[in-house]
């Protein structure tokens, strides 16, 4: 009996290990290529780790390429999108969770509908709309588009978090002397922090890695975000893998930092509602 359990535990751990290896291997390869000197990249064949390592790609990317600008653009766009979406989704999610109002059903249906189109279909019309407004080739334009696409899903996400908080709480606060908005801000919002963290993280990463709209709406390096910028390492005749991978590694840093910051809330948030109390 005990042996069997031990065996099962080992099998379970091995399965997890296998999964982790598969999931993280591309990241490892990213790191490996980013520290491999150019002259070894093709000459050494396939090796797990190069015979000598270098940080030359990193220094080139940071000093001589436009990468710092792409990076800054991405931070502005992703951060801006995440904050705006989370504020809007909190308010909208609260309304959907707590109020009954006319056309609520249709609003929800419309929001769902927006999630059903393949984005590619919408690229041309959106370009057509943004162009005369001067919002193509601008970070503002990109933020507007990202916000529009992320708000519906984020609203549903926030709504489910609000649904998990008993209505009695804000009613008690309102009887205690708070307006509804005060009750929302002082009682409900602090209890929704895990949900807010989850929403922030979700939207931030979605915007951080978005390529399609960034590629279509931005031309030139001035307003390019990092995924678009990565393509600048691809030239007509060659691909500079070392620099591309170094840029990739650097681009991982903010996402990692962000999740490190919110992970405490995130774990709570994603499991909230699974267990009562």
């Amino acid at each position: 009996m005990r042996k069997k359990r031990l065996g099962l535990t080992i099998a379970h751990r091995l399965a997890i290990l296998a999964y982790i290896v598969v999931a993280l291997f591309p990241l490892f390869w990213l790191l490996k290529v980013s520290v491999t000197p150019n002259e070894l990249l093709y000459s050494e064949g396939v090796r797990l780790w190069p015979s000598s390592t270098t940080f030359q790609h990193f220094s080139f990317v940071l000093v001589h390429s436009d990468f710092p600008r792409f990076f800054k653009n991405s931070v502005i766009v992703s951060g801006g999108t995440a904050i705006i979406v989370t504020i809007l989704a909190s308010l909208a999610g609260y309304a959907l969770s707590r109020f009954t109002f006319r056309a609520k059903y249709w609003i929800v249906a419309l929001m769902l509908l927006t999630q059903m189109f393949p984005l590619v279909m919408l690229v041309a019309p959106i370009f057509k709309m943004l162009s005369p407004l001067g919002l193509t080739n601008s970070l503002t334009g990109l933020i507007i588009v990202y916000v529009a696409f992320n708000v519906p899903f984020a609203t549903f996400l926030m709504q489910s978090f609000f649904d998990g908080i008993p209505k009695d709480l804000e009613e008690a606060a309102m009887i205690d002397g708070a307006t509804r908005f005060m009750a929302f801000r002082q009682i409900i919002l602090p209890l929704t922090l895990p949900g807010i963290a989850a929403t922030l993280g979700f939207v931030f990463t979605a915007a951080w890695s978005e390529l399609l709209f960034a590629l279509m709406l931005i031309s030139g390096n001035q307003a390019a975000t990092f995924p678009v910028g990565l393509l600048s390492f691809v030239s007509k005749f060659s691909v500079d893998f070392g620099q591309m991978m170094a840029a990739g590694v650097l681009a991982l840093i903010p996402a990692c930092l962000f999740f490190l910051l919110i992970q405490r809330y995130l774990v709570q948030g994603l499991t909230a509602g699974a267990v009562k109390g």
């Binding site: 008993p166 009695d168 709480l169 009613e171 008690a172 606060a173 009682i187 209890l191």
Partner: peptide, 8 residues
Amino acid sequence: FQSYALYP
């Protein structure tokens, strides 16, 4: 309230 509705 029945649920007490204390602010957690």
